[in-house]
Each structure stands twice: as C-alpha cells, then as structure tokens.
Amino acid sequence: MAVTSVKSLSETITFPPVWIPETIRFENFTLAWDSGPFLRYFVNSLIVTLSILVLQLFTIVPAAYAFARYRFFADRALFALTMITLMIPTQLIFLPVYLQFSSWGLLDTHLALILPFAANAFAIFMLRQTFKQVPEELLEAARLDQASEWKIMYMIMVPMAKPTIITLLLFSFITHWNDYFWPLVMTTTDASRTLPVGISALTNVEGGVAWHIMMAGNMILVVPILIIFFVAQRHIIRAFVYTGVK
C-alpha cells in the first residue's frame, strides 16, 4: 500500500465515493453538520480538551519541579506512583471510575471527561527531565539575587522549559481531542458528548450508511488537528520522535 499523504487523505474523505467526483460538493458539510447536533459536540470537545490542558498546566509544572529539584520524604515512592499511572490505560479503569462518578452524580457531565485527566504522568516525567537539565548554578544565581522559590520556578524554570511545555500541551490536545473511548463510556446524552463519539454515531444511521455525509462529518474532527499539525509540525514530530528514541 502506498504512503497516503495528508492531501490525498483529506481529498479522499471530502469527496463522495466516486473515483473522480464530477462536481465538488461542499454541501456535504452542511448536510453532515445538520444531521446531528455537531455544534454541540464541537463545543463540548473544545470545553473538555481546553479544560484538561489548563488543569494539566497547573498540576504538571509544580509536580515536575518538585520531583526534579527537591529531595523530600517519600519522593521516590510518589514518583514511582506517578510512573505506575503511566502504564494504566483508561480501558482498564473505566468500570470503577464509572461507578465512582455515578455515585457522585457526575456521569454524563463535562467533569467526568475532564477530571481523570487533570494530571498527566507522562508529562510530569518529561518535564522533570527538562527541569533536571537546567544547571544548578542558574538556581544559585537566582537565590543570590533574592528570588523566592516560586519566583525561580515561574521566572526562570518555566520560561526555560517553554518548548517542552508547548510540546506536551500539543500532545495532550491531540490525545484528548481524538479520544473516543472515555467519552463513549462516560456520556449518555448529546449534552456532554464530544465530536468523536458524535461522529461515530453516523455509522448507525438507519437504512444504509451515507458515506459522503460521514466523511464530511469526519472533516470537522480532523481539520483542527491538521491545522495544528501543520502550524507546529516540527514541534510535534520532534516531540514524538524524541519520546520514542530517548
């Protein structure tokens, strides 16, 4: 099978299932858009993904900094716990978490889609590595400059780790924008469903599958990712390759 390029991919799924379309039918998009509450899904996806990013920023940076720079009681144990989390896929924990959320009355809400991902073990691990590479001298210089520990973190460490942080956020965005499993399990109504789940429902249309509409629907899901990818292509590829090689 030949390598499928992005362009051919997007072209393939835009067109109706004819090898060469006679006319380019943009109205497929509107058809798809109208065939379900896609605006709702889109907004839900946006709310969930962005909330996750913001929360992660607030949990990851301090944790990575503490793991990189402080020695404290049980630091190794807590770091080990973080690393264990890294290997637990959501496909393993959805049942107990589902029960938990149902007892809290949070099923089918945005919170159920956001909270479990408010922290990210992989990101903590990566950011910790980055923080560790900052020479100790720099921190000492800042201490001699009478900077407080918080100030050192936000004025010196975070700006230095900016490329890593951006990369990790892109990473997170892609993962959670695309996520299908978790919203599938945790949502029951359109009020909180996200795009991937909403679009997948197009396969179950009664009376045969409307391929052209389904493909157009997918464009809504894919295009934001492709835009981000092309804007930050080097960043993203470097990030993925780095995590694979190192």
């Binding site: 390598v3 991919l9 924008w177 695309n178 997948s200 990712i225 990818f229 292509q233 590829i237």
Partner: peptide, 15 residues
C-alpha cells in the same frame, strides 16, 4: 514525506 507519513498518527482513530 515526513508530514505525510506522520499524519495518520495524529488523526483520530474514529476518522
């Protein structure tokens, strides 16, 4: 080639 080869990796499995 890099971009082309890589895009399937970041596109939703749903699509």
């Amino acid at each position: 080639v890099q971009g082309a080869v890589f895009s399937p990796h970041i596109i939703s499995l749903v699509s």
